[in-house]
Amino acid sequence: MNPRVIGAIAIGGVVALLLCLLAVPMMVFGGSSMLFSGGGAGGCVAGSSGTVSQPGVSSAAANSIPANYLTWYRKVGQQYGVPWTVLAGIGKVESDHGRTTLPGVTSGANAFGAAGPMQIGIEGAAGNQWSALATVEDGKPPASVYDPADAIAGAAKYLIAHGVQTNVQSAIFAYNHLDSYVTAVLGWASTYASGGFTVSATSPNSASSATSAACIGTGTLDSLITPNAAVATVINFAQAQLGKPYLWGGTGPDAFDCSGLVMMAYRAAGINIPRTSEDQWAQLPHVPAGNVEPGDLVFFAGADGTPTSPGHVGLVIGHDKMIEAYATGFPIRISTFGSPTSQPGLSQVVGFARPWAQPGLNLGNSARG
């Protein structure tokens, strides 16, 4: 969104180390966390709390996220369908979640005209981006670029406008036109998604610190954890394909059709499923709509199918969202299903299936008890 690179340069060494651990070129969210995961934290984190350990977290201060920022990253991520870890990665690189003392974070603007904890342009070389993104997220008008809640919502809107649901890297590059910036943000996003952070006390520079104790919206996101490590691998594989083209009959690595994508995603986890959506629906264990979990397959009649032999399938990632290879001309993307506003063919769900529940599969210690 603006040309300065102070944050990216400052953490370049750390990011370089993190990238050595990545297994795919897109966002690799290790452990059992998924795209919208809350890192395993249950319940609320009050703004006045001290450090609260998460499963598998690092104790390094550099990896902490202030409680109020974590609350808003999660809430806004759920609200807009943007991975909260990407929002947190941007917040880390731009202002260390509002904790840096650099110009423009709590007042005024930096030398390029960017302001607030998410460093959104308000003037100068950065342009006045805020006028189109201003959002009263915390219910306390007027919208302020210096308010963490408002700024995080503005950043989410910017990422949505630049296609984050189909190409995460491209959207981050649009935010700041530097490859090193994209690398930095994805490095921190990967760390946060794998639970590599602690929750620190509310940021002293926050304009909405009192709101963090309300625990707004964290419960739903905290529940969006993959049921086992195999499903985490499946979702990681599918995420890595975002933005690739649809190809009828395609099974990768450069293009996929709907059933080819989910088949190869499960194959990446060592689980074999049928090739076509019709056979997947017919042969895999079904699950009721009320028991759907990340990693389940969601089926639709599709242009070439029927409710008894559905012609389209997607991979559920939580909160009525899925990763899918939709049709020719549409890149692999994240979509909303089962809603009257869903795109054609996606509003009526035929049903759900759970590949990892096939009889005879041994998931070892990765299965949830």
Results as ranks from 00 to 15, higher is better:
F330Y: 14
T135P: 01
Y326T: 14
V5W: 00
N362W: 12
G12F: 09
P355A: 08
G305L: 12
Y192T: 00
S200P: 04
L17A: 15
A41H: 07
I90G: 00
A327R: 15
P66R: 06
L35A: 07
L19E: 13
S200H: 01
V86E: 01
M264N: 05
N236L: 08
F36W: 11
G311E: 05
T202M: 11
D138S: 12
K157Y: 06
S95E: 02
P355M: 08
N272M: 14
V185S: 05
G121V: 11
G217C: 07
G290S: 15
G40K: 07
S339V: 00
N167E: 01
S259T: 08
G270P: 03
W356M: 12
Q283T: 09
L18I: 15
L361I: 11
R267C: 00
V168A: 01
A46K: 14
P307S: 12
G56P: 01
T336M: 13
T308P: 01
K140T: 15
I152Q: 01
N272Y: 12
G42Y: 07
W248T: 08
I65N: 00
R333P: 04
T218S: 02
S131R: 14
I273H: 12
V234S: 06
S259N: 01
L315Y: 02
E278M: 14
A156M: 12
P359A: 13
P340W: 08
T85H: 11
L17R: 15
S49T: 07
S347L: 03
A213F: 08
S131D: 12
A282W: 05
G38I: 07
T85D: 04
I235D: 01
L70P: 02
Y69I: 09
L261H: 08
I273F: 09
P253Q: 07
G104V: 13
G163V: 04
G124T: 10
Y73L: 15
Y326D: 03
K157R: 15
A109L: 00
V24N: 12
P141S: 13
V199C: 01
V5R: 13
Y181R: 10
A213S: 15
G77W: 12
K92W: 01
V24C: 06
M27R: 09
N110W: 11
A265S: 15
L315T: 09
G196S: 07
G345W: 05
H319V: 04
S33M: 02
H319C: 11
P25A: 06
I332W: 01
G369V: 03
D296K: 10
G163C: 05
I9A: 10
I235A: 07
V182D: 03
G56F: 01
E94C: 09
L261R: 14
K321I: 00
S107W: 10
A367D: 05
A214L: 15
G360L: 03
A174G: 03
F29Y: 09
N228Q: 13
V86P: 00
V76Y: 06
A149F: 07
G40C: 08
N205F: 02
G154K: 08
C258I: 05
Y146D: 00
A353Q: 03
I120M: 11
D222Q: 10
I332T: 00
M1E: 02
Q280Y: 11
A201V: 13
I317D: 02
I11M: 11
P103N: 03
A171E: 05
L102G: 04
P142A: 10
A8V: 05
H97R: 02
G250D: 00
M264D: 00
G290N: 13
S58K: 11
Q79W: 12
I334W: 13
A88Q: 04
N110A: 03
